[in-house]
Design a protein around this nucleic acid. Structure first.
Length: 575
DNA sequence: CTAGGGTTAG
């Protein structure tokens, strides 16, 4: 029974759980915390809460265990709920309570609140609590780092963790030279110190300096190797990343995940799947981090094949999908346009969070299911989930894609009035797109001037698209002038204008614009597109004739655009 | 305390 909290086998634990209940031991002040801890390790948070609820007079230690369980289950709200209940029923928190709560904090105000409690209880002198405060503040960006520094400076006794946490905070906020300064000055350095400063160089994109440091480090563990490999994949140097990956002496699932995601981000689906198979065969632990990383890389590059392969492996593992993994699956299927699969995952989730709803709404809104997206938005509110600014980007773009101008305007104003969400540039962008597509070009143009943000390429681009849609050459010229200042080498912009002239039969301006296209084209590297089919991954460029059947392909495309024209569907191919 | 990770307008 003493080793109860070390039991990680779910079946054994369930047997123990039954026995404990049978002998009424679950109310025992010694057994209950251990049982809660074990249940939460096996992701049985519901059962853990149940145990807690049956203890007649919970003490500080029991509450701490439950808080820890919620934090482990990435449910900070529930963790804070337990904390509030503690305070309400007069159970005094101790330094362990604050250690666990600080792990659950992601907002500055939240850390500040704990900080105030800690000061009041005079726990301020506890080294562990202070180290956690520095760490928690460091995760709150630029506002947090000042507060972290204040705690750091006020500490009479510091250990290596204090320095490491502070250095990590400086690295995260981009103050590499300050971090390096502190690293050089600290009394003694351990593995974590070296890895942290190494990560600083990597995060700053200084790979040659990072590599030099890596080579002269007194220790190199899996984390050091992974840090450097990840740096190379982020710079797109997958070859160098692979060389190091093959060379590293001991691997765990993290470097495997990094290299697979790296291949996926480059669109190299064959290599990614091959390595994923090898990773699975090698018996490496496939955890949430692995699934989420690779799925997100698949989503970004539109690699359905890899995404499906990962999904297969998740299903095969038999574990219930965490919210994080489910959300990543929804996003992957959504971005790849397989909406029924995304919908399946969404509907079978037992706990949805705000991001699940947002991701599903976006997926629907981007792939022609605008009405479904808006219905889902209504359902989300019915089920008691409060929308945020991201939700409204999805809602507004659903409206604009399906031409619901009045409804969109309503949602735009409702967002501040009903939810207190101040519109950001993305929301104005959607509204401008909505008005533009709806043919209300002058209103859209007016809004660009009246909104409280500087218009960017996305805004001007959407307005240019609207000009093309409604063949307004005069406005298009104005827009293109603005766009030129921000994006001088985008030939697509000119080609849109040229097509507007062509539609109105202004051939003089067509040839003028074409000349400018050629100029812009010479300044820009030619883009390569790619598509994934059943037999693998294919790359192609504009005017590509390398395919053996390219004649037949162009025939087909021309035939299709003829048919589209017949049903009054304008295409913008520039041939 | 250090490596991989879920939603954001054309």
């Amino acid at each position: 029974m003493a080793d109860l909290d070390k039991c990680t086998n779910i079946n054994e634990l369930k047997q123990l759980h039954a026995l404990i209940y049978k002998y009424n031991l679950h109310k025992d002040p010694f057994v209950a915390p251990k049982l809660i801890s074990a249940l939460s390790l096996c992701c049985q948070t519901g059962l853990a809460i149940n145990v807690f609820d049956h203890v007649p007079f919970p003490d500080t230690r029991l509450c701490n265990t439950l808080i820890k369980a919620h934090v482990r289950n990435s449910d900070p709200l529930k963790a804070f709920h337990v904390f509030n209940e503690m305070l309400r029923s007069g159970i005094s928190p101790d330094n362990w309570t604050y250690l666990f709560l600080l792990k659950a904090c992601s907002r500055y105000e939240c850390v500040q609140m704990i900080h105030a409690h800690v000061e009041k209880l005079n726990l301020y002198l506890d080294l562990f609590v202070c180290n956690s405060l520095i760490d928690a503040y460091s995760k709150c960006g630029i506002v947090g780092i000042v507060a972290a520094r204040n705690v750091f400076d006020a500490m009479a006794e510091k250990d290596v963790v204090t320095y490491n946490s502070m250095i990590n905070g400086l690295v995260r906020t981009g103050s590499l030279s300050e971090a390096k300064n502190m690293f050089d000055k600290m009394p003694q350095r351990d593995k974590v110190s070296w890895n942290t400063i190494l990560d600083g160089y990597v995060k700053a994109g200084k790979m040659s300096e990072a590599f030099a440091l890596f080579e002269r480090m007194p220790w190199r563990d899996v984390i050091s190797w992974s840090t450097v490999i990840s740096g190379y994949t982020k710079l797109g140097d997958i070859e160098m990343a692979r060389v190091l990956f093959d060379k590293m002496p001991v691997k765990n699932s993290v470097p495997w995940t990094i290299i697979i995601s790296g291949y996926a981000e480059m669109g190299l689906v064959k290599e990614a799947i091959e390595l994923f198979n090898k990773m699975e065969e090698g018996g490496f632990n496939l955890d949430d981090g692995t699934f989420v990383s690779i799925l997100s890389a698949s989503a970004e590059s539109g690699l359905v094949g890899l995404g499906k392969r990962v999904h297969q492996s998740i299903t095969k593992s038999g574990h219930k999908c965490s919210v994080l993994v489910s959300n990543a699956l929804i996003d992957m299927y959504g971005k790849c346009g397989i909406l029924n699969k995304a919908w399946d995952v969404f509907n079978t989730m037992d706990r949805k969070d705000l991001i699940s709803w947002n991701t599903m709404i976006h997926g629907l809104a981007m792939h022609g299911y605008e009405r479904k997206a808006l219905q889902l938005f209504a359902r989300m509110k019915q089920e008691g989930c409060t929308p945020d600014k991201v939700t409204f980007v999805g809602v507004l773009s659903a409206c604009s894609h399906t031409g619901m101008v009045e409804e969109g305007i309503c949602y735009f104003y409702g967002m501040e009035k009903d939810y207190g969400i101040v519109p950001e540039i993305q929301h104005y962008g959607c509204l401008i797109d909505l008005l533009g597509r709806g043919g209300r070009l002058s209103e859209a143009f007016q809004l660009v001037h009246d909104m409280p943000f500087e218009p960017n390429v996305v805004i001007w681009g959407s307005l240019l698209g609207a000009c093309r849609m409604h063949n307004d050459a005069l406005l298009a010229e104005k827009v293109l002038n603005q766009l030129m200042k921000l994006e001088p080498v985008n030939a697509g912009n000119f080609s849109l204008l040229s097509n507007i002239y062509a539609t109105s039969g202004d051939w003089g301006n067509v040839s003028n614009t074409r000349l400018q296209i050629r100029k812009a084209d010479n300044n820009s590297p030619s883009g390569v597109s790619s598509i994934e089919l059943d037999d693998g991954f294919h790359e192609f460029t504009i005017m590509d004739v390398t395919h053996p059947k390219s004649n037949r392909i162009y025939q087909l495309v021309n035939g299709l655009s003829q048919q589209l024209k017949k049903i009054d569907f304008a295409t913008d191919a520039c041939v």
